[in-house]
Every structure is written in C-alpha cells, then in structure tokens.
Design a protein around this nucleic acid. Sequence first.
DNA 1: AGAACCTTACCACGCCTCTGTCAGGGTTGT
DNA 2: ACAACCCTGACAGAGGCGTGGTAAGGTTCT
Lengths: 121, 121
Amino acid sequence: MDGLTINQAAATTGWSPRMLRYLDSTGLVTPPRTASDYRIYGPGELQRLRTLRNLLDSQGIEISDVGFAQRMRSQPDLQSAVEGWLDAPVAPPEGVADTADWLRFEQDKHERLLTLAGGAS
Amino acid sequence: MDGLTINQAAATTGWSPRMLRYLDSTGLVTPPRTASDYRIYGPGELQRLRTLRNLLDSQGIEISDVGFAQRMRSQPDLQSAVEGWLDAPVAPPEGVADTADWLRFEQDKHERLLTLAGGAS
DNA sequence: AGAACCTTACCACGCCTCTGTCAGGGTTGT
DNA sequence: ACAACCCTGACAGAGGCGTGGTAAGGTTCT
C-alpha cells in the first residue's frame, strides 16, 4: 500500500488527525480507504491539505466557505440562483417606465436562469 | 420621499426590522439613507429582500453563504484562489511520470491563476 | 500475544451567526 | 408638544463550526 496513514499525514501536513477526519466529513479532502476503512493519504491528498491551509491563511476564509464554494460547483442550480440574486440590480434600469414592468422583468430573468441551469422542461 | 421606512419594508417583506438592519450591516441589502440616516427602501430593495428569502429557503443556504459569494464576486484573487484549489486534481493526471514533476505542475498552475486574476506584472 | 495503530461516536469548549429585545437619544407628523 | 417613528449600541440565547479529548472496539506489525 502506497500512501500515508492519518497520523503520518497529520505529521507532514500540520493538520491534526482530528481535523483530517473533520475535513473528510466535510467532503473537502476525502482520501480513499483500505478494505478495513483506514484512510490512505497519497501525494494528491497531501498537496491538497497543504494548499488548503495556505488558502485559508492567505485569504482569511473558513473551511465552511470552501465547502460552500464546492457545493456551488457541484450544484449548477444553486450557483445560478445565487449569482442571479447577486446580479439583480438594486434600482430599475433606464428605459423601464413602469415599476411593475421592471419587477416582471426581474422575475422573468430569475426564471430564465433557473430554467437554463437545470429546470425540468 | 418615495420609499418605505424600515418598519413598512419589514411589514411587506416578512423580514423583521432587526433583520433588515442586520442585512444592511452585512452588505447584502443596503438601502440609501435620508439626511437624518433613516433607511429608505425602494422597489429595488423590496424585490431584493423578497427574492433573498426565496433564495435562502429554496436552496437551503445561509445569509453568510450569500455574503461569501458576494465577497468572491468583488475579490477576483479570492475567487481564483478558491477555484484554483477546487480544481486541483486529487491524483496526478496521466502522463506525469514523476510525482515531484506533478507537484511542480500544480504549483505553476496556481501561480498562473493568481497572475491571471490580478497579479502585478 | 501485545503494542501501536486505526475506526466511529460521543462530550465539551470558545467563537461566530442569526435573531430578539431593550435603553438612550434624535426625527417626523399632527 | 406629544406620539410615533427612526437610529445605534448592547445584552442574550439558540444553534452551528472548528477543535480537542476520550472511550470502546477492530487491524497491523513485530
């Protein structure tokens, strides 16, 4: 078996074994398992762990933030819903005479985004 | 003055006045102010508040998640750092003979992403 | 076989998010 | 002028996150 056990991986990455299990549970770093469920950390996981620490420190973000970014990655409807909300203007654009028209425009846009990202036809 | 005060906005959107102030403090919905610092909610803010509630409920996410997405929006280096980490493969790709070569490849990719997103030349 | 390792499952603590409420003080409407 | 509204700031409590520990039990090495 090539790869480090959880304590060895902890020693070389600076994470505690406890945190490696936690990161596994969050889905951020999920090493393969042996037949008896031992976690096996290969070079890929080790690099991922080291760069994760670097990412958190350098950007001042939390583990849960990276988890959310990953979730947006894997769920396109989530991503389009969030981005659609962020893109909605705070004031009606020029050229829209009636406020009611603008609200309808925004509503339609929202629906278009959802449909585009995976809506049932 | 056209626009609703905070209690009126709360009544028509379902948020509590307390939460409207909180959302203001997080930067998610920041209404303009009168000369005496009263918050004024126009149709844009009201729509944003209603769709925010809908977004949170339908996607099962938190206010802080939307805040993080907004932060990634406004900070391209943060976005590229997070996406760079998420894109890093967990195992060396085919055709890379040496593990050390692969680590160098990953390192270079990370640097390319950072440079591309706003690095000083 | 026995030491040293791994697993999951809990309890616990500090910090942050979300939400309510209240106090003290300024503004608006009648 | 007075009620009704707004502001900020603070305290408070439920719940989640990040992290450590520990207990009970299975696996691997020597």
